[in-house]
Nucleic acid binder design. Structure first.
Lengths: 118, 118
DNA sequence: CCGTTATATCTTCGCAGCCGATATATTGAC
DNA sequence: GTCAATATATCGGCTGCGAAGATATAACGG
């Protein structure tokens, strides 16, 4: 697994924190939690899931057959949850560093956005 | 330019918000602002700079010769600053989404073998 | 009935970005 | 005289992402 996580992978893991989901459920949930900004393509999704399974960050929890269609549910492993927590913390630091500098930039130029930081 | 920005590119832009820097200065500044977590390799740095120049996110401000060695100073353009601000905002949202879910996970005490139901 | 939309999984291929390795050159320290 | 630090640059491999398309079922509308 490449770390830092790229956005699609990051959002897949985030979506799985709450509950196990199947592939199509992930597509809709990732779209939802990113406010429609990210719509996963099959190539991205199943490629990512293969890698995540391989790295032990997610596991197949169960398989269901609904209306002759297969549903394979993926669950976040403890390892996956820990890694997501670490990645989130790293991103938080990067966001903080950039925000601090951008705020200074705003002060001496074009006033924009919320001047208040987190 | 591929957006979302990858970590090295993101940190390069962040480092350039405060002041123009030359290549080697970027390596040290990025290491500093990431608390030593990221040490840029030449291949990463100059590849990224080529792409950033090409996309108009940075420009060459000036060139100096110090001790017979060239120093090429890169400056963030307004476009680059705007893009960095947008990228930072997007990352902030992703961090927020993940943090919210991870916090809930922690509160439940990391569900083991059935989270208390059934 | 038939076409479209939604549900659902999966593969193939190309591209972009990152990193390790390597090259080159100067200066100062040991 | 050799090593570390300063400084820029190229190349090849690897990985992850995304576009495109294949496949299949069910629901809904025309």
């Amino acid at each position: 697994m490449e770390t830092p996580l790229r956005e699609p992978t990051f959002l897949i893991l985030t979506a799985l924190v709450a509950e196990p989901l199947h592939g199509y459920g992930l597509i809709t949930e990732v779209a939802r939690l990113s406010d429609g900004r990210v719509s996963l393509r099959p190539g991205t999704l199943y490629g990512a899931l293969d890698r995540l399974l391989d790295a032990g960050l997610v596991t197949v929890e169960r398989e269901e057959v609904v209306d002759s269609r297969l549903r394979r549910y993926y669950r976040l492993t403890e390892h996956g949850g820990d890694l997501l927590a670490n990645e989130t913390e790293r991103m938080r630091r990067n966001v903080e560093a950039a925000t601090a500098r951008l705020t200074a930039r705003t002060r001496r130029g074009t006033p924009r956005l919320n001047g208040g930081i987190a």
